Simulated scan of single mutants.
Amino acid sequence: MASFEESAPVPLDAEEMRRLRVARLERIGKWVLPIAIMCVAIFLWDRIVVWNEIPHYILPRPIDVLQALIDDRALLFSSLLTTLRITGLGLLLAVVGGVGLAVLFAQSKWVEMSFFPFAIVLQVTPIVAIFPLINIYVDNQTAKLLLCAWIVAFFPILSNTTLGLNSVDRNLRDLFKLNGATRWQELWHLRLPAAMPYFLGGLKIAGGLALIGAVVAEFVAGSAGQSSGLASRIIESGYRLRTARLFAALILISLTGIVIFMTLTWISHMMLRRWHESALKQEQ
């Protein structure tokens, strides 16, 4: 009898019940509130167009944008694939170059002092100011766009990874030295794992910037044709007053940015959830 009483669950007090109820409401509200607000915004958009009798070439109704998305889906989604290809390749090059250079910076202060200012110059100089030079020296249109996407996405990965590699606990580094670890063993087994949260944080920033770089570069380049990206569709639709298609292309760019951010956030969580404090808090 006593053992049964000992194994019986302890009833939750009122405060614990309140916290559980608040946590449940927050989990539901995290999805319901944005969807509800978006629905209200779309409804108001539609009503403003109808009430003010705004011409469709000035501001189309949401149903017109949806219809353009359906009617022009072949053209828009082929352009989306072009933009995604430039974004993905730019991000991949930024990861390879940023991480590789950050490792060199971590291994040699002289290398960091020599080359880090050039990375800062690339970051603070607007891409629209650099593009005329790229346009002169690079002939291939895809290479131009790819270079712009890489330049924009490169610095967050380099900066964050360098910060992570240099933020290792000095006591742990001394422990590795006492045990005779080489510089590369210390890098592989200590500094790279410690820098992983910083790198993943920079990766989430760089993913959105790579998309922005690809779109802005295409705006500046003014490229057109069947193999052009979404930015070219926006330019073309603006010239032809096909405003519904223009809005459809804008929506695809926004949704692409959201998907990229959510995917990289999920990857970050999956890689950190078993050992890093930031991911462990989300698991609770």
Rank of each mutant, 00 (worst) to 15 (best):
A153H: 09
R27M: 08
S223E: 15
Q107H: 12
S167P: 03
I35D: 14
F118A: 12
I212R: 15
S254K: 15
R170Q: 08
R21M: 05
R273K: 12
F4C: 14
R47F: 15
S108V: 02
L89V: 05
V10G: 01
L178Q: 07
R233D: 06
M1S: 15
L12D: 12
L209D: 01
N135S: 15
V103I: 08
S108C: 03
L146K: 11
A2Y: 11
A231E: 03
C148W: 14
F154M: 10
F176I: 03
R274Y: 10
I120A: 01
A206D: 00
F154R: 14
N166D: 00
M262D: 14
T83Y: 06
L101S: 13
E53W: 07
Q67E: 12
V124P: 05
L250R: 15
T263P: 06
G202V: 05
Y198I: 00
A74I: 10
G90H: 14
P60V: 07
L187A: 05
S232E: 04
N179E: 02
S114E: 07
V65D: 07
M38N: 14
L178E: 02
V259P: 09
L163E: 00
H269W: 13
A23P: 11
A248I: 04
V216Q: 08
Q123D: 01
V99A: 02
V95E: 01
R73K: 12
R273V: 07
A195R: 00
K177C: 07
L209A: 05
L59C: 03
A214H: 13
V103Q: 01
L255W: 09
L264I: 06
L280D: 01
V152P: 13
A194P: 01
L200A: 04
R170F: 00
N179F: 01
V111C: 02
L20F: 10
M262F: 09
F116T: 03
A195M: 04
L104T: 03
P9M: 09
E6G: 04
P197S: 04
G238A: 08
I86E: 02
E53F: 14
E112I: 00
V49E: 01
F105T: 00
E5M: 14
T142Q: 15
